[in-house]
Amino acid sequence: MRKRTLTLPNGKVVTEQRSKVPLICAILLVFIIVAMRVTHFSFRTLATNGHQFFVILGAMFPPHLDFLNRVWQPLFDTIKMSFLGSLLGALVAVPLAVLSATNIVKSKLLSGFFKLVLSIMRTLPTIVMALIATFIFGLGTMAGTLAIFIFTVSYVGKLTYEQIESLDMGTFEALESLGLTRLQAFRYGIVPQILPTYLSTSLFSFEGNLRYAAILGYVGAGGLGIILNEQLGWRDYGNVGMILTVLIVTVGLIELISQTARQKLQ
């Protein structure tokens, strides 16, 4: 980029640093146009057909109450899947997080390896995980639980090792100097500092997982997704509305509980 200079009346010369904003805007604009071509985006279709969306939305109301009886079982499956996956995932995340933290594990190689493991686990979208799991473990909640478990391990693991690495290691050293072993120093010096955040992260992850678990059934991994897929396929939108209502209420309730718990932890 060419540089312009400005000369002040008193003879001082300042090299102007030009704002990059126009350049960034231009690049974004070009990419938006390209992306609109690639995705066949058309405002005209949206204007002429957009009401279809609301037609379907309208068909969901009022929800078919008599369908409620068929919702409970998959709903419980969804809750079970996300609870089990989150709980086990959060537990397994702890040793992985500790092994990934450079200030606890002295070997750069070891911590680097575990960080890579967590990073790769996080990369694959959960739905792809669930899909693969259905091929290995068969259709059902087992596959969904596994997918949620893997996601939770990677998510809670990453946030926890970042938390450990940002800790002040003074306490740890002080306790070691008192004659505690590294493990004891960890238990009394590190754990109390990271516990609230760790629990809060785990709860947050559980909230998100519950939402996510609802779609895993779509690939046959159990839960609400199965009946959702079925009812959407039959275009029985009243029933879909019922499923969504139940899901929104459940997620809302669990979020409320979890948020109160998280606020108490802070």
Partner: peptide
């Protein structure tokens, strides 16, 4: 809270299958 798949199916009715519905 409404799963993205539900939106996806609704938008497929609007724009037909394809990346537009995804957007």
């Amino acid at each position: 809270t409404i799963p993205s798949l539900v939106y996806g199916l609704m938008f497929v009715r609007v724009s037909g299958p394809g990346p537009f519905a995804g957007v």
